[in-house]
């Protein structure tokens, strides 16, 4: 497997991708505003994270046409879109959205900090974050329900349902990203790109 997580796997420079990404970013900005007005800080955080992740590549390169792949950004908005869903499938979709968001965060960290990961490590990291976010949500939501009277699940069985969905999402995301990285590697190999030199 390739040693480094190449930036050009996740930063596109086509106009079309940039336009769609900016439209999504605009919608996220509106969502943040609505969330603030309604004191929905979970929405503010989720939309905020996705918006930051979308805005960093053009900021760093000072080129509005540089953007993250719009499908990945779209999936990263799923927790906002399907967050109210109570069904198991809906929760799995939310989990996959969290995984996509985590991957974009990794990409942004590699662009702006000294953090470095191999594709395998990044996949593992994303899987851990998906499960960890479910755990963090549980602790924060329960605390908020206790002291602020907000909503939380009623029974332990329901909580286990959420955790089970997170586990399924984590595994599915791991498989998807692993498949995606493999495909990118094959593509690079057949096109004879410079990354070939880095292949272990």
């Amino acid at each position: 497997m390739i040693q480094m997580l190449p930036e050009n796997w996740f930063v596109r420079d086509t106009k079309l991708n940039a336009v769609i990404s900016w439209v999504l970013t605009g919608m996220l900005a509106v969502t943040i505003a609505v969330g603030l007005v309604n004191s929905r800080f979970d929405i503010v955080m989720l939309a905020g994270a996705a918006a930051i992740v979308a805005v960093v590549p053009p900021l760093v390169s000072r080129n509005w046409q540089q953007s993250v792949p719009w499908p990945l950004l779209l999936v990263a908005t799923f927790p906002l879109v399907f967050g109210a869903s109570g069904s198991f499938f809906g929760l799995v979709v939310v989990g996959i959205g969290i995984a996509a968001l985590a991957l974009l965060v990794v990409v942004v960290l590699q662009m702006t900090t000294t953090v470095r990961m191999t594709p395998n490590f990044a996949t593992g990291f994303v899987m851990i974050c998906t499960l960890g976010t479910a755990g963090l949500w549980a602790v924060l939501s329960a605390t908020s329900a206790r002291f602020l009277g907000s909503a939380f699940v009623e029974t332990n069985d329901q909580l286990m349902g959420v955790f089970s969905a997170a586990l399924v999402a984590s595994i599915l995301s791991g498989l998807i990203f692993r498949w995606y990285f493999r495909r990118q590697l094959e593509r690079n190999r057949s096109s004879g790109s410079p990354e070939e030199a880095q292949i272990a």
Partner: peptide
């Protein structure tokens, strides 16, 4: 390996996520 680098702040966040994930 030089291809994995975890500065202290990030390592802190990673460890918290790991413990939460393990707990789940």
């Amino acid at each position: 390996t030089e291809f994995i680098n975890m500065p202290p702040t990030f390592l802190f966040v990673f460890m918290l996520m790991f413990v939460l994930a393990f707990g789940v």
